[in-house]
Amino acid sequence: MLKALARKSHTLERFLEGWSLFYENTVGRIGLFLLLFFALMAVCSYIPPLIDPMYHPMTGVDPEVFRSTPPSPTHWLGTDNIGRDLLSQLLTGARIAFLVGITAAFMSIVFGTLIGMIAGYAGKVLDSLLMRFADMIMVMPSLLVVLLLSSLFGQLNIWIIVLLISLFRWPGIARVIRAQTLSLKQRPFIDMARVAGASHLRIVFRHILPNVLPMALLYMTFRVTSAIIVEAALAFLGFGDPNTVSWGMMLQWVWKTGHMFQAPYWLLPPGICISLITLSFYMMGRAMEEVLDPRLRKEEQRI
C-alpha cells in the first residue's frame, strides 16, 4: 500500500528510497536506535512525578533521605544530596536536551538557510556583506560571549539560551546553503523559470528552497549536537537556567556539592547521556550525509 502511495507522491517516494539506504547503513541504524532510546526516556520523564510527588525532579524530596544515597529499590539511580530522585532528573534531562537541541538547531537552520539562499542568489554586494557578517560571527568564541552576556544580565532563561545558541550557529549552515544555491543558480531550470517570467521571490522559494532543504535538514542534525554541548557547558559552568533540570545542571550540582569523586552513580549517568545523545545525532547525520551524497546517488541512478 505504501508503495502505491509512493507512486503518487514524489516526496514520499524519495523519502522511502533514502530511508532504505539509510537503514542499510550500520552507523545510521545504531544512531537511530540510540536516539529512539533517548526519546523514550524523554517521554517517560512525565511518569515518575505521577507515581509519587517525591519523584518530581526539581521539587520532590524524599523525606527519609538527607544526603546523597547510592541506587536503591526506591531510587533506582540513587538520590542527590537533598534527597531528590536521580532517575527522574535524568529522564527530565533527556526532555530538556531534545527541547534545547532541536529548537536551537531548527532556528539556526531557518536563519542559515534564508541568509544562505539570499546571499547566494543575490550575489555581488549583498552576498559579500552577508558573508563577511557570517565570518565575523563564526570566528567569535560563542561560549565566551554567552558567558559574558549571562554574567551581565544574571541568570538566563532556557529559551534565551536557545536563541543565543541559534544566533551563533547559523553561519556554518549559511555557507553551505550559499554554496549550494550558487551551483543551483547555474542549473538550466532556474533559467527556464526566468524565461517563464518568474519573480526572484518565486525562484528562491519555489525552485531553490526545495532543492536545498535536504542539505539543510542534514546540517540540522549536526547543529543539534553542538547546541546540546553548548547548553551542557553553560549549565555546568553555572550559567544555566536554575529552574530546569538538564544534564549539564546535574553535573554542576555534583560538582558544586563536592560529590565529584564520592558519588559516581550521580556523576556518570548525565555524563554518559550527554556523550551518547550527541553521538547518536552525529551518527545519524553521517548516515544521512551518505544518503544525500550526490556521488552515491549517481551510483543509484545508474541502475
Partner: peptide, 23 residues
Amino acid sequence: LKAFRRKVQLIPQDPYQSLNPYL
C-alpha cells in the same frame, strides 16, 4: 519585461537539467 517573457520561450538543451526535480 513580463510581456516580453510571455512572447519568447526557450526549448532547452538538456531536458533533465531544465526541469525542477521537485515539481
